[in-house]
C-alpha cells in the first residue's frame, strides 16, 4: 500500500491489487472501512481502479502524516466478504450499430470479424466496474474480450450523445451525458447511467458486475 498526495487536499491510497474480482473487492472493502470509521478531517472517499482517493480538509486534520497513518491502520484491517455478497449484477440493453454505433463496422474490420461477431463478443463479456468518473455516472468497465480491444480514435469527436456505448483500448463503457469523446462508438442504450433526480444518481458503483444485452431498433425506440 502506498500513499501519494494528490494536491494539497487529497491523498491516493494505491493498494497494488489487480482489477479482477479479488482486487476490486479489496478496493471496495478499504473504501467502506474508511467510510465507516472516517479519520478526522476526511470529507470524501472515492474508490477507483486499484486505489482509494481520500479527500480531506487540512484545517480539520491533525497533521498530514497522522492522517496517512490513520488511513493505513484502517486499510490494513479490512473485512471484505460482507460487501462482496451485496455486489450487484446490472444488465444494460444496447442497440448495436445504426446511428448510435457509427464505428461498429470499423471495429469489426480492424479485428477481422463481422459486426455480429463484435456484438456477440461484447454481449458475451462479464464486466466489472473499476471506477466511476470522467463524467457523472461514467463507469470504467474491465473485462472487454481481447479480440475487440480497439485503440482510441486519433481525433476525438466533439460531441458524443448520452447513452452511446463505446470501446477505448481495453475498456468499454457508456457515455452518460453528451460529451466529447475519443472512443469507438458501437451502439446505444436507452438506460440512464446518470440522473441527478435519482436517490443514487449513478446507476453503477465500483465493484458492480455488468452484462450488455442486444436489443433491436424498435425496442430501443419503445424503451421507457
Amino acid at each position: 500500500m502506498t500513499l501519494t498526495p494528490l494536491g494539497d487536499s487529497a491523498v491516493v491510497v494505491a493498494l497494488g491489487c489487480g482489477l479482477d474480482e479479488a482486487g476490486l473487492r479489496r478496493v471496495r472493502g478499504v473504501a467502506e472501512a474508511l467510510e465507516r470509521d472516517r479519520p478526522a478531517g476526511v470529507v470524501e472517499i472515492v474508490p477507483a481502479f486499484a486505489s482509494v482517493t481520500v479527500y480531506y480538509d487540512v484545517t480539520q486534520v491533525g497533521g498530514y502524516e497522522r492522517l496517512c497513518r490513520e488511513i493505513e491502520v484502517r486499510a490494513e484491517r479490512v473485512e471484505t466478504d460482507d460487501w462482496w455478497r451485496a455486489a450487484r449484477l446490472i444488465e444494460i440493453p444496447v442497440c448495436y450499430g445504426g446511428y448510435g454505433g457509427a464505428d461498429l463496422a470499423e471495429v469489426a474490420a480492424r479485428a477481422g470479424l463481422s459486426a455480429d461477431d463484435v456484438v456477440a463478443l461484447h454481449t458475451g463479456g462479464d464486466y466489472l466496474v473499476q471506477a466511476i468518473g470522467f463524467a457523472p455516472g461514467f463507469a470504467y468497465l474491465g473485462g472487454l474480450p481481447e479480440k475487440i480491444h480497439t485503440p482510441r480514435r486519433t481525433t476525438p469527436r466533439t460531441a458524443v450523445p448520452a447513452g452511446t456505448v463505446g470501446i477505448g483500448g481495453a475498456q468499454t463503457g457508456v457515455y452518460p451525458l453528451m460529451t466529447p469523446g475519443g472512443w469507438n462508438l458501437i451502439g446505444r442504450t436507452p438506460v440512464l447511467l446518470f440522473d441527478a433526480g435519482r436517490n443514487e444518481p449513478a446507476l453503477l458503483r465500483v465493484g458492480d458486475r455488468v452484462k450488455f444485452r442486444a436489443i433491436n431498433a424498435e425496442e430501443l425506440a419503445a424503451w421507457r
Binding site: I132, G133, F134, A135, P136, F138, E200, V206
Partner: peptide, 10 residues
C-alpha cells in the same frame, strides 16, 4: 458539491 465524487460528480 461534496460527497458525490464517487458518482463522478465534480
Amino acid at each position: 458539491r461534496r460527497g458525490h465524487r464517487a458518482a463522478g460528480v465534480p
